[in-house]
Design a protein around this nucleic acid. Structure first.
Lengths: 129, 129
DNA sequence: CAAGATTGAGTCGTCAATCTTA
DNA sequence: TAAGATTGACGACTCAATCTTG
């Protein structure tokens, strides 16, 4: 029941973002690159998204094929590869994050004011604990 | 934020079930077979789990390889294949569903009584709407 | 040896195409 | 033609093994 609800939520958000030609995973990568204000090593991205390094390799492969990100050398460590967001990546990020925010907004509007407060508090606790 | 919470929930439940050598998907299939009280056609299973038929084919492939399910002919329709849970499948189901229930229980215990009521109501609305 | 990235294999999901049977 | 199941190709994730560089 809890599981089913959780899957429903994810499916709704995924679908909202798909109109911008993005998946939640790809949007998440772009989000971190934009917020960082500059290119990031793949290993740092993997840490921040709490995923395995090999997964980030594959994600950047796809984003690079889409033209939303470019791999550039790290001048300070030749082992490292930096992910750099492109102009097109920035445009897609804007579009996708707006769609995501709208869907979350719409989600909360299905709750009463009291439920909104309770749920927000619950999310904070869950995301911290 | 909502997304992150949803993923955390799923990861917790998945991990709890993993100790029984099951994934949430496999447990879900076994659950429907047990509750049905007899073998079910793959197409029915796919409907009930709200997934695509080809996914059920693969799931049953894995469950059959694990020895938890057997494919048997449907005497009433030669196009149809029935999934039949084995004794070992039943044991694993018991173990996995207990672990899942415990984890959901533990999850709710992190909430106040008032929050529990609110959240349960919220889940009902989400799962119906 | 340890860290960064990649590759290969496996799980769980999708869709599109195919094959058999109704 | 449609229903039931399967296969193949893909997206997103995991782990284990490998290669290069520190």
């Amino acid at each position: 029941m809890l599981l089913y609800a959780s899957q429903r939520i994810e499916a709704r958000l995924e679908s909202a973002v798909a109109d911008s030609g993005l998946s939640l995973s790809k949007l998440n990568v772009l989000d971190h690159l934009v917020k960082a204000g500059g290119p990031l090593p793949l290993s740092r991205l993997a840490e921040r998204l709490s995923c395995v390094k090999s997964n980030m390799t594959q994600l950047i492969d796809k984003l690079e094929a889409d033209g939303l990100v470019r791999r550039v050398n790290d001048p300070e460590d030749r082992r490292s590869v930096l992910a750099l967001i492109t102009d097109e990546g920035r445009r897609r990020y804007e579009s996708g994050s707006v769609a995501l925010a709208e869907q979350e907004q719409q989600f909360f509007q299905e709750l009463t004011t009291e439920e909104q407060d309770q749920f927000a508090q619950f999310l904070r606790r869950l995301n911290n604990g």
